[in-house]
């Protein structure tokens, strides 16, 4: 295994590629030898995000498409017109709204599910034939760390996160016989600066390295897994603040 180019010969599609996490994933994957297609709906944001990157790393191609499930067929067709196949799919869209549960409309929930899960599912369906043919597919879905921890005003976002996580855990069994893996990485929902016990705030590179691990052979025997990239927030609850206080590092 070449650790410095762990995705040599791979083709990746990153949904929400102009987001902070998506951009970091694209850069990391490209640096590891993958050809990367990034898709986001804001043309200006996408072009700006990748203008410098395309010069440094030629493996990146930017696509603009409205992030709605029905549009994903066109997106995948466009990507597959440039790539022979796509064997890595990353869902890094991040449309989440907050508010007390009783204030949420069903259309809000439907929109969040559509963007954050529906787009990835639809792309997965479109890319599946190529993955099956190549006996290789790695799907990495990002979701907020609300799967097994709760915050006020996040019921709808947590429902989306739970749906994404459960989709990954279950879909893996449909396709493992084709050596297609599906995994989830959870990132801090609100990015409270300084609240995470470990390093204050995560950098988007931390999420990108988790996606890299999932997508490459380092984790080739890992599937249906959920990885919290949130500095230990999910495990510590309120107690860490006492420990931090004792340590004198951060109260």
């Amino acid at each position: 295994m070449k650790y410095a180019s762990m995705l040599e010969g791979r083709y990746a599609l990153i949904l929400g590629g102009a987001s902070q996490v998506g951009r970091a994933v694209a850069q990391t994957f490209a640096e590891h030898g993958a050809r990367v297609a990034v898709a986001d709906e804001d043309r200006q944001r996408t072009c700006e995000a990748f203008a410098d990157l395309k010069e440094k790393i030629p493996g990146v191609a930017a696509f603009t498409e409205k992030l709605a499930a029905p549009r994903m067929k066109d997106l995948c067709s466009a990507v597959l017109s440039e790539f022979p196949y796509v064997d890595i799919l990353v869902g890094a869209t991040d449309l989440y709204k907050t508010g007390e549960a009783h204030l949420f409309s069903i259309s809000d929930l439907r929109q969040m599910l559509g963007v954050n899960l529906g787009c990835a599912v639809r792309c997965f369906q479109e890319l599946l034939p190529g993955m099956k043919k190549n006996r290789r597919g790695d799907v990495v879905l990002f979701a907020p760390d609300l799967v097994d921890a709760a915050l006020p005003n996040t019921a709808a976002a947590a429902a989306c996160a739970g749906a994404i996580n459960s989709f990954a855990r279950n879909a893996t069994f449909d396709y493992i016989r084709y050596h297609i893996r599906v995994n989830t990485a959870l990132y801090p929902f609100d990015g409270h600066p300084g609240r995470e016990p470990l390093t204050g705030s995560p950098e988007s590179l931390d999420a990108a390295n988790a996606a890299l691990w999932y997508a490459c052979d380092l984790s080739r025997f890992v599937t249906g897994e959920t990885l919290n990239v949130n500095g230990g927030m999910a495990y510590m609850q309120a107690g860490f603040e006492r420990a931090a206080g004792k340590a004198g590092v951060r109260a």
Binding site: P197, L198, T199, D206, A210, L227, N228, V229, G231, Y235
Partner: peptide, 10 residues
């Protein structure tokens, strides 16, 4: 690579 991951069971 995992500097922001702790307490995990993988």
């Amino acid at each position: 690579l995992s500097r922001h991951i702790t307490g995990a069971v993988i």
